[in-house]
Design a protein around this nucleic acid. Structure first.
Ligand code: FES
Ligand code: FES
Lengths: 162, 162
DNA sequence: TTTAATTACGACTGTTTTAGTCGCAATTAG
DNA sequence: CTAATTGCGACTAAAACAGTCGTAATTAAA
């Protein structure tokens, strides 16, 4: 799916909050709900998803909580969205076979929409969460966030990637 | 809303079909359902919306139908989406007051999301439906489709527009 | 003048998605 | 042992989506 829904919002809220902590300092769900008013269980589950994907680390038990692991300037919005709501798809029609659109055979706009979907994904992949949270949302670049800084070493044959 | 849902799909299907007709030649809903398998009533309503907004023209009665009025290379995807599903909003949270998010007061990511929304809108505004249907989806440009070609006359002080 | 083909429009229904809740287990500091 | 916390699955309620139905209104043609 495509939209920034509640889950993504809670993820961003949590990430922004954790980013401002000292390294090693933990954040509890209780803390997030108190500060930002987001519902406990829902926020909890979102954090668990982020933890499962290694973006944050969880510590259980009495003084447990969550802790940011990665550098948000190296994490794309696409990755976060994918962690909490699955692969970005601008239209249900594009879905892999089961549940996919039944008009696919005769549809005259499948390829334009597929292409558009790719562009949107590129956009989200090129947008670092760190910059987004700082309010710096540049126009999209085709260069995915994960690869930034690797350009120098990787040389010029990057076109074959993916 | 943001997603390319069924309504938008039907609109694009119809537009692409009509675009290939001779000037003055009409297209009926029956024709569209026969060719592309889209449901009659739903498609019908979408065309009525496009007609109400002046993108297509309708002719009633026995040999009636719809006819493309505007040049699709001058119509942005944003405009079409807006005609059939209302203003593009990447997150419900941004909704104008009624129904808007109740966390707005305390939320720490309102402004990043607002900005992101603006970028997405810019993207859709910069994307001509004509080019999209031809499979030419370029990376986003900040120049809205409606203003293209006016650049030469308008000179260089376009930054103040909007 | 009648009939058939078509657009116009509102109300309605069923399905899917979203949002949030509940209950209980597992872990760990004190 | 107890309290605070994460971990997880099942569940419910509400909203959005997709499609249908019924009924006018319009017009070409028989
Ligand atoms: S693929 Fe689903 S309507 Fe075009
Ligand atoms: S404004 Fe709705 S959660 Fe941020």
């Amino acid at each position: 799916m495509n939209k920034i829904n509640r889950k993504v919002e809670y993820a961003l809220i949590g990430l922004k909050h954790m980013r401002s902590k000292q390294p090693g300092e933990l954040t509890t769900i209780k803390e997030l709900t108190a500060l930002y008013g987001c519902p406990f269980e829902a926020t909890s589950k979102v954090m668990q998803m982020l933890a499962g994907r290694g973006l944050v680390r969880s510590e259980q038990g009495a003084h447990g909580g969550y802790q940011l692991v990665k550098d948000l300037s190296r994490v794309s919005l696409y990755e976060v969205m994918e962690m909490v709501i699955g692969p970005v798809e601008i239209a249900k029609c594009l879905h892999g076979e089961p549940g996919g659109c039944d008009l696919r055979q005769s549809c005259n706009v499948v390829s334009p929409i597929t292409l558009l979907n790719r562009r949107i994904i590129e956009f989200y992949r090129g947008l670092a969460v760190g910059e987004l949270l700082d309010g710096r949302v540049a126009g999209p670049r085709s260069q995915p966030v994960e690869l930034r800084g690797l350009v120098a070493e990787a040389g010029h044959q990057l076109s074959g990637v993916e």
